Simulated scan of single mutants.
Amino acid sequence: MTSTTASSPTVDLRTIAPQQRHSLVFTTFIALPPGAAIELINDHNPLPLRGQFDSGLYGAFQWTALESGPEQWRVEIAKPASSKPVHGVDSCCGSCGG
């Protein structure tokens, strides 16, 4: 379930099928305007998701642990206000033909 507050959307991954979780998080994050954030709630440590963010969006996000188990994990993922479009994600310069 995804809900939105005035400040940021909250994505409760516990209610989402495991095979849909990461794509939902990336879609939600990419749609954020610079300076905004999402809050994730999960039933396990989201380290694999953090690895995907590091490899695909390195430097284009801020990851803050808000709660670290054992029942639930909460993480805030922010898009810095100075964020530029990420090649291949939310823009394309055309040089790769993509």
Results as ranks from 00 to 15, higher is better:
R14S: 12
N42K: 00
Q52S: 13
V25D: 08
L24Y: 02
G35W: 09
W73T: 06
W73D: 05
E39D: 09
T15E: 15
L49N: 01
L32D: 07
G51H: 09
E71P: 05
A6R: 10
T27A: 14
L66W: 02
W63F: 08
S7Q: 14
P9G: 09
A31D: 13
I30A: 10
L13D: 11
L32S: 02
P33V: 00
P48D: 04
H44V: 06
Y58R: 02
A60E: 14
F26R: 00
I16W: 07
Q19P: 06
T27Y: 07
G69N: 07
G35K: 01
A60N: 13
L49V: 07
D54H: 13
P70I: 08
R50I: 04
Q52E: 15
D54S: 14
S55T: 08
F61Y: 15
H44N: 04
S8Q: 11
R50P: 01
G56A: 12
A65T: 15
E71H: 12
L24H: 05
W73V: 06
A17I: 00
S8A: 14
I16N: 02
L66I: 07
F61M: 06
I30S: 06
T64V: 13
L32R: 01
I16R: 04
R74S: 03
A36V: 00
V11Q: 04
A17Q: 07
F26G: 02
G59C: 05
V25W: 03
G35Y: 08
R74Y: 06
D54M: 13
E76C: 11
S68E: 15
S7A: 15
L57E: 07
T15K: 13
Y58A: 14
A6C: 12
I38M: 08
T28Q: 08
P48C: 06
Q62M: 12
S23C: 09
G51I: 07
T28A: 11
S23D: 11
W63I: 03
F61S: 06
E67C: 12
E76V: 09
A65L: 15
N42E: 03
L32C: 04
P33I: 00
R74E: 02
L49R: 03
Q20D: 13
